[in-house]
Structures are given as structure tokens and as C-alpha cells.
């Protein structure tokens, strides 16, 4: 497992919150709502979608291309089960003393096996995903983080994942 996209460094959410929302056209809204549920698996999926919303295949293709290039859609296509791609994952957390927060962030982020890392408002204030090639490597990374930071890692791998049906209507 490699983390190919470039890591974004600390983003302050309260700052970025305000200006990110985009204005959407009626067709854009329709497509975003419809395609969150899924794209039909057939030779001309965009023609089938166009028919459902009384549009044209060309208009649908242009609209989706724009939404993707503007990154309103972060992904479009098959979503693979991460575990099926090989490798092991876990969610882990640290309770970091406030004074050490920047230092610990740097230490934790320096591991290429750390995929996501979020600051959260709790005693356990740093939550990150460790993604590795093997289960043994997860243990090694967790132990290395403990050595580097002197903090105990709370390691909470998933025991069971539930089916979700997230829908963000616009």
C-alpha cells in the first residue's frame, strides 16, 4: 500500500470552512444526488442516467467532467474495499499533552504508513489510520510511534464493519 497523493499538511478547519461551499446548477445537483446511489453497470451508463433525468448523454458527461475537475466529486467510479486491495488497517489514537502537540504530529506524520490523521476534541486528541502491507507491520508501526513519542497508542482495529448508506442531498 503506498500513499500516492501528496499529504496535505495541517489545515485549520475553522479557517477553511467558510469559503469552500460551491454554487451548483440544477443538473449538477440532480447528478450529485442520483450518482451517490450508484451508476448502472452497462455499456452506456451515462445515456441511461440521462434518460432517468430527461437530459442528454453529452450534457451528463460534460457536467460530470466539470464536477470532477473542480473536485466537487473527490471520486467517481468503483469504490474498492480497502482490505480487498491487500494490506492491513487500524484506527489508533494518542492522548497528546497540548505543549507537545506539534512535535508529536510531526513524529506521527513522518511514518509513511499513516494515511489519515485528525485532531479531535477529546483527551485522546489525535486519531490516525495506520495502513500497512501486513498485520505484523501494524504492530511495528504502533510500537515505533510509542518509542518516538513516549505515549501509549490506543489501537482499535475494526472488529465488524456495518453497511452504510450515506446520502448527502444537495
Amino acid at each position: 500500500m503506498d500513499n500516492s497523493s501528496s499529504p496535505s499538511t495541517t489545515k485549520n478547519m475553522s479557517k477553511s470552512r467558510k469559503c469552500q461551499t460551491v454554487e451548483l446548477s440544477a443538473l449538477e445537483k440532480q447528478l450529485i444526488n442520483l450518482l451517490q446511489h450508484g451508476l448502472p453497470v452497462c455499456e452506456r451508463p451515462f445515456a441511461q442516467i440521462a434518460e432517468e433525468i430527461s437530459s442528454t448523454e453529452q450534457a451528463v458527461i460534460e457536467c460530470l467532467t466539470k464536477l470532477r475537475s473542480e473536485k466537487v466529486l473527490t471520486r467517481f467510479g468503483p469504490m474498492f474495499d480497502a482490505a480487498s486491495l491487500g494490506g492491513a488497517f487500524t484506527l489508533a489514537a494518542l492522548a497528546v499533552p497540548e505543549a507537545d502537540f506539534d512535535f508529536v504530529t510531526e513524529q506521527v506524520n513522518s511514518f509513511e504508513q499513516i494515511a489519515h490523521n485528525y485532531r479531535r476534541d477529546h483527551d485522546f486528541n489525535m486519531w490516525f489510520v495506520i495502513a500497512t502491507e501486513s498485520a505484523e507491520e501494524i504492530e511495528k508501526v504502533a510500537q515505533a510511534i510509542e518509542r518516538k513519542t513516549g505515549l501509549k497508542v490506543l489501537n482499535v482495529p475494526k472488529l465488524k464493519e456495518f453497511y452504510v448508506s450515506l446520502y448527502l442531498p444537495v
Binding site: M13, S16, R17, Q20, T21, V22, L31, I32, L35, Q36, H37, G38, L39, V41, L64, L67, K71, V72, L73, T74, R75, F76, G77, P78, M79, F80, D81, S84, L168, V170
Partner: peptide
């Protein structure tokens, strides 16, 4: 594609919006 969907290797073929850009901040 259909076989991978049935086995759960592909979860969905869909659009994933950027939550923030849709106002889900």
C-alpha cells in the same frame, strides 16, 4: 465488474462528493 460487486471487492460504483464543497462542513 458485476462479480467483484457481488463479492464486495467493489462496494459501489458511484460519485463521492467532497463533503465540504456541498456544505457538509
Amino acid at each position: 465488474t458485476k462479480s467483484m460487486q457481488e463479492r464486495g471487492v467493489i462496494r459501489r460504483i458511484a460519485a463521492v462528493p467532497n463533503h465540504y464543497k456541498l456544505g457538509y462542513q
